[in-house]
């Protein structure tokens, strides 16, 4: 039965949840909250089963391919969305978070490589560490981006003295600023650890003479650039007090997201060894989990 779960199951659920979120702007409903949780929760369940089934059938970790990595990032984002929606049911978080979830699922579906990363015994642990830290850092940047957009919208509304729009209730600026700062700091820490573990992983590969990544590879310097930006943004927010208030901190998180997109995009746009090998993008896909190909591929494992 699990083999029958496809991308369509959970992405359609998230899409319905997003449509329900959009209806907030037009009319009130007593059942919308329950329907939202039902569709988003149902989507998350299908998403979890899909990931679990892939991990089980490919006898590997959940982060064993680029596709899994994007799907897991989307999964984490849905968990964050559900948490926020349960605790702040009147706030329109879904309007900002669900499009990003669908974006990540879309990248997984149409662009990301489904072929598992190669596994050497020595690299397996570091590959997992590398992948998990990069995943958490990415989710934090994406959450920060959504919160940053909300902060900019709220600041614009307050500056222009516009009344709160029915259905588009946003958190207070103070809360949004706090979340922006936390997202920036957390993402810098996680991506820093992910970057360091990636270096360790590459050194191991180097020593074993298997699948090592050249130090000049675009993915390394674009990741380094992203990390440098996040460290600078964190330092800026930490030591320059005005950067912690108002739109400045929101701009920092929006810029972090742009760097993230450039960094992730560089592996498809620039000649990199990081995600080469096996099939190229767009070859999976709306097929049930049992039919996902599982050939080996080159690359340093863990993250994309």
């Amino acid at each position: 039965m699990l083999a029958g779960i496809s991308f369509t199951c959970f992405s359609a659920s998230y899409l319905v949840a997003l449509v329900l979120e959009v209806t907030r702007l037009f009319f009130r409903s007593g059942v919308r909250g329950a329907l939202l949780l039902l569709f988003a929760g149902g989507g998350l369940l299908a998403h979890t089963l899909y990931l679990g089934h892939r991990a089980f059938t490919q006898q590997g970790a959940i982060l064993s391919s680029e596709l899994d990595w994007y799907l897991l990032a989307a999964w984490c984002l849905v968990v964050v969305y559900l948490y926020l929606t349960v605790y702040h049911p009147q706030t329109a978080f879904g309007l900002f978070v669900l499009p990003l979830v669908l974006g990540l699922v879309g990248v997984a579906r149409f662009i990301a490589d489904p072929v598992p990363f190669p596994r050497t015994e020595a690299a397996q642990v570091w590959g997992a560490i590398h992948g998990v830290f990069l995943l958490l850092g990415t989710v934090a940047v994406v959450v920060g981006f959504a919160v940053g957009l909300m902060a900019l919208l709220q600041a614009y509304r307050l500056k222009h003295k516009l009344p709160p729009q029915r259905g588009l209730r946003l958190p207070s600026l103070e809360w949004l600023e706090l979340m922006n700062i936390r997202a920036t700091k957390f993402s810098a820490l996680m991506l820093g650890l992910g970057f360091v573990s990636g270096i360790v992983l590459n050194l191991i590969h180097d020593r074993l003479h298997v699948e090592e990544l050249p130090w000049t590879d675009p993915i390394i310097w674009s990741s380094g650039l992203l990390l440098a930006w996040l460290v600078a943004a964190t330092g800026f927010a930490q030591f320059y007090r005005p950067a912690r208030a108002g739109r400045k901190v929101a701009y920092l998180t929006v810029a972090s997201f742009v760097f993230l997109v450039l960094s992730l995009g560089s592996q498809w746009l620039l000649p990199t060894h990081h995600s080469l090998g096996g099939q190229r993008p767009g070859q999976l896909h709306d097929q049930p989990t049992s039919n996902v190909p599982g050939a080996t591929r080159a690359g340093p494992g863990g993250g994309p």
Binding site: R28, Q154, R157, L158, K161, P163, P164, R166, L170, P171, S172, L173, E174, W175, L178
Partner: peptide, 24 residues
């Protein structure tokens, strides 16, 4: 309905519609 959501006195509008959206 949103009949009791909207405030109509100046101090209540100032606090509910604006101050609460700035400060947590």
């Amino acid at each position: 309905t949103s009949i009791n959501e909207k405030r109509v006195s100046i101090p209540s509008v100032a606090v509910a519609d604006f101050a609460r959206n700035i400060f947590e």
